[in-house]
Nucleic acid binder design. Structure first.
Length: 272
DNA sequence: GGCCAGGACCGTG
DNA sequence: CACGGTCATGGC
């Protein structure tokens, strides 16, 4: 059990801001599974086996100082204030690299409800069952498991044209991931490495860098961010990266996520 | 039936 | 380098 009340943490903002796909809300809070471990978030507490405490502390980056990060961003751009307020408690997670690679490969030209369905299907079919409370959850399948499949084994999951990308990613990660010191690479080096995987372009790579590798100095640019930066800041699409770097500085990944969450969920201003 | 979904790929100009 | 067509699938 971990007490979350002394941390800036909103389950809703954190789990529903588009960075993760395996947390589900019920009448008692949220249930999630990551790294082969399940837990429940309820009433400001994280309920889990004692031996999993360190894992979840790392997953939620509970050592990070959010007040310092937000003060930094507000000084960079005071107009971020409504976004930071609306996204109060939104934490950027440190998710598993392999799971994040697959999740965001599946995100391409897709919508969030169906991304979740695809991932759940993948886990139910190829993951390991884990008993939690009164139900059975399924872990995210290993790289070796998926790498050992044929593309046709994924047909029932209806991944569309993305099935071959999943297979390419599995083969790549199974053969290279363990020998790469990801944390030692620069963001650009890690990006170029990830983009060797078919189905991983600039945007998907940047999401992986931000949501799995803790590269807070990347600014994933999707259709929403394109609209937002164009309409709010009148930034030409070509120069958005340079603009974000200059405007927000190191924590531009957080700026991106708060902007995304605010303008995507908070009615008005941006027409989708 | 057309359009859109946290895009990427591939072929042309 | 920039542009546009195409790619499965499902919901509206």
């Amino acid at each position: 059990m971990i007490c979350l009340k002394n941390h800036e943490f909103s389950p809703k903002a954190t789990f529903e801001c588009g960075q993760c796909f395996r947390w589900t809300a019920d009448d008692k809070g949220y249930v999630g599974i990551a790294g082969g471990r399940a837990c429940r978030i309820r009433d400001g507490r994280l309920e889990c086996p004692e031996e999993d405490n360190a894992f979840w502390r790392s997953y939620f980056c509970l050592d990070m100082d959010y007040s310092a990060m937000k003060a930094f961003l507000l000084e960079q751009d005071p107009t971020l204030e409504p976004c930071l307020d609306y996204g109060q408690g939104l934490r950027i997670l440190r998710q598993d690299l392999w799971e994040t690679v697959i999740s965001f490969i599946l995100s391409a030209n897709n919508n969030i409800p169906r991304i979740k369905k695809m991932i759940e299907g993948l886990c139910k079919k190829f993951g390991e069952p884990i008993a939690f409370e009164d139900k059975i959850l399924y872990s995210f399948p290993s790289t070796q498991c998926i790498a050992g499949l044929k593309c046709s084994d994924l047909a029932a999951l209806k991944l569309g044209y993305r099935d071959r990308y999943v297979m390419d990613a599995a083969v790549f990660m199974a053969s290279h991931a363990d020998s790469i010191a990801w944390q030692q690479l620069s963001a650009e080096e890690a990006r170029q490495t990830l983009m060797q995987i078919k189905g991983v372009g600039r945007k998907v790579a940047d999401c992986i860098l931000l949501f799995a590798l803790g590269c807070y100095d990347v600014f994933p640019q999707d259709v929403w961010i394109r609209r937002i930066m164009g309409q709010v800041y009148q930034t030409p699409e070509r120069s958005t990266q340079e603009f974000a770097q200059q405007k927000y500085g190191y924590y531009r990944g957080f700026a991106q996520q708060y902007l995304f969450y605010y303008y995507r969920n908070h009615a008005g201003k941006i027409q989708g």
